[in-house]
Amino acid sequence: MLTRRIIPCLDVRDGKVVKGVRFQSLREIADPAERAFLYQQQGADEITMLDISATPQGRATAIETVARLRNCLSIPLTVGGGVRTIDDVARLLDAGADKVAINTQATREPALIEQCSRRFGAQCVVIAIDAKRQDEHWGVVVRSGQSLTPLDACDWARQVQQLGAGEILLTSWDRDGTRSGYDLELIAAVSSAVTIPVIASGGAAGPDHLIDALRAGADAVLAASIFHDGQFTVADIKRDLAQSNVEVRL
C-alpha cells in the first residue's frame, strides 16, 4: 500500500530557513541542515527546500546548502526556486537533489519541462504551480506571486503532465502562510485534472487540515510553519493521520 507523504518545507534565503505570509514578511528561524535532519528523525517522508534568495551569491549558497542537506538526509530531497535552465537542474541534481521543482520559467518556456524530463526522467521533474483564486477559476501566479499569468491552473496542470512532469507541487497563493487550511476545492480540481501525483501546499495549521487535503485528493501534503514553530512534530501529525485511517509510514 502506497502511504501518504508528509513533506516539511524549508524556505531558504542566504543559507537560513525563513518563513513568510503570502510569500512576504520573512523572518529567519534556523539552520536548514539541522532542521531537515530533525524532521527526518521525526518521520518526514521527504524534504522540500525552496531557495528564495534573489542574488547570484544567494544562489551559490543554495547549492552548498543542498549538498549539506544531502549529506545528513537518507530520505528524498526536492529543491526549487530560481531554476531557469537545464544546467540549473543538472547543478542541483549533482549537488544532491533527487527532484527539482520548476515554477516561473516553466510558464515562460514550457519546452524546458520536456527537455528535463527526457534528460533526467519524469520522476525528477516537479512543476510548482502557485494558484490564485479568480472569479470562476484559479489563475497561475509567478515570480513569487508578483505576476498573474493568463494560465488556468487546471489547464496548466494538464499541460505540464503532457510535457513530461512527474509531479505537481500545488500551492494556494491565497492560503499560503495564513493557517486557514488548504484550498480543498483547488486540490480537488487539479488532482482530478491530472494522473501524476499532486502535493498540496499552503494554509496548514494542524493535523485536520492535512487530513482534509488528503481526502480532497492530494497524494502528499507539504507544510512549513506548523513544523517550524514546534507546535506539532511530524510524528504528532502522523499519529493523528493514522488514527483517522490515513495510511502513513510510522
Binding site: M1, L2, T3, R4, R5, D45, A122, Q123, G166, E167, T195, I196, P197, D219, A220, R249
Partner: peptide, 10 residues
C-alpha cells in the same frame, strides 16, 4: 491510480 508511483510503499 497515479503514475509515476511516487512515495513510500510496503
Amino acid at each position: 491510480p497515479r503514475v509515476p508511483h511516487m512515495g513510500w510503499n510496503t
